[in-house]
């Protein structure tokens, strides 16, 4: 037997690992987003590829430059900038000018992520910060919606643009009229398949659900946040609809339109900006659903998913603090001194 005493690797326990890593998680998220990207290409065509390419390229290059300027490790290999880029692209209207997408990407990576210290340290979901910066800065471009590929009711469409279901409902009631032929223009089937106006990646519930199931299967997310998010929206919308069916959309319309599925499975489950405890995730999901519905019903915007998640992001440290598990062998849930 040869003496290899010089060669033994000595390190503290444990000496084994699950094998999972941050980059693996990020790659899984990218894979899980592929169905939505494909759906985006089918429904909105070339624009989906254009925006995704711009956002991903800008995010990766910006991350590289900022990390270099800050003299930190270059974190590109963790793939998180790619995820942010794709998520931002999926949260943009198809016709958005490229330079605006660049502004959004820079806001996401430079301001929301790297100025806070990079991966793990950001308080807010970078892609959503990017989207909200654009929504506030360029309200018209951010609410101009391309006509989807297969329009069920061509008469409701002027030449090149069309309102989202939630937008159409809100503007009609704002002027005091029930929206005409709403349910013919936006049949529930189109909402589920994704053949409706909206952001690039938010329209196809089927594709998003498929991606969500991939994330659940690969343990990248747990069911708590999406179920509570979607469930709260469904219950809230159901109650409103029961109370006044003429003025309030049925629950299914609220759940399947806007960005609920994209938000619930891909944004409200972002690990960095959401709670670490299971009960915290339940609160987070319910909070997102609640704020989304409040904005949709009483707010100025027809849609509130992005804002609801950002608001809950801000509450995450507090939620973590209040949902701290009871330590084994301790009596109560004593709070920190």
């Amino acid at each position: 037997m040869t003496d290899s005493s010089a060669g033994w690797i000595v390190s503290p326990s444990p000496h084994t690992h699950s094998g999972d890593s941050v980059s693996r998680i990020m790659i899984t998220v990218i894979v899980a987003l592929v169905p939505s990207l494909v759906a985006g290409v089918i429904v909105f065509g070339w624009d989906t590829i254009r925006l995704t390419t711009i956002c991903v390229a800008t995010c990766v290059v910006a991350e590289y430059i900022v990390r270099t300027m800050m003299r930190r490790d270059i974190g590109i290999t963790d793939w998180s900038a790619v995820v942010t880029g794709i998520l931002l692209a999926l949260n943009l209207p198809p016709t958005l000018p490229g330079w605006m997408a660049i502004v959004g990407s820079l806001s996401a990576i430079v301001v929301a992520k790297q100025l806070y210290g990079g991966i793990g340290y950001n308080l807010f979901n970078p892609a959503l910060v990017g989207r909200c910066v654009l929504l506030i800065s360029f309200p018209v471009a951010m609410t101009t919606w391309a006509v989807p590929a297969f329009v069920p009711n061509a008469s409701a469409v002027d030449a090149t643009t069309m309102a989202t279901p939630l937008g159409a409902w809100k503007t009609a009631w704002a002027s005091g009229n029930a929206p005409a032929s709403f349910f013919e223009t936006y049949p529930i089937r189109s909402l589920i398949l994704g053949n409706r106006p909206g952001c690039v990646g938010e329209t196809s519930v089927v594709a998003l659900l498929l991606g969500g199931l991939i994330l659940l299967w690969r343990r990248c997310i747990s069911w708590h946040t999406p179920v509570l998010f979607i469930g709260t929206v469904a219950v809230f919308a159901g109650v409103l609809h029961q109370a006044d069916p003429a003025r309030n959309l049925p629950a299914a319309y609220h759940v399947f339109s806007g960005g609920i599925f994209l938000g619930a499975f891909f944004m409200a489950t972002d690990m960095v900006t959401t709670p670490v405890t299971r009960s915290g995730m339940l609160i987070f999901g319910a909070g997102c659903g609640l704020i989304t519905m409040i904005i949709r019903k009483w707010g100025g915007y027809p849609e509130g998913v992005s804002f609801s998640i950002l608001i809950m992001n801000a509450l995450t440290p507090l939620i973590n603090r209040f949902t701290r598990p009871r330590t084994f062998g301790h009596k109560g849930r004593e709070m920190e001194k």
Partner: peptide, 27 residues
């Protein structure tokens, strides 16, 4: 033998779910 360099915590909460003592290893 898996040798890694460590990264900042990404707040996934897996340690919280794994901890038999009910601690928050991440924090």
């Amino acid at each position: 033998i898996q040798q890694y360099s460590s990264m900042p915590c990404i707040g996934c909460g897996r340690c919280v779910q794994a901890c038999p003592s009910g601690l928050l290893p991440c924090f």
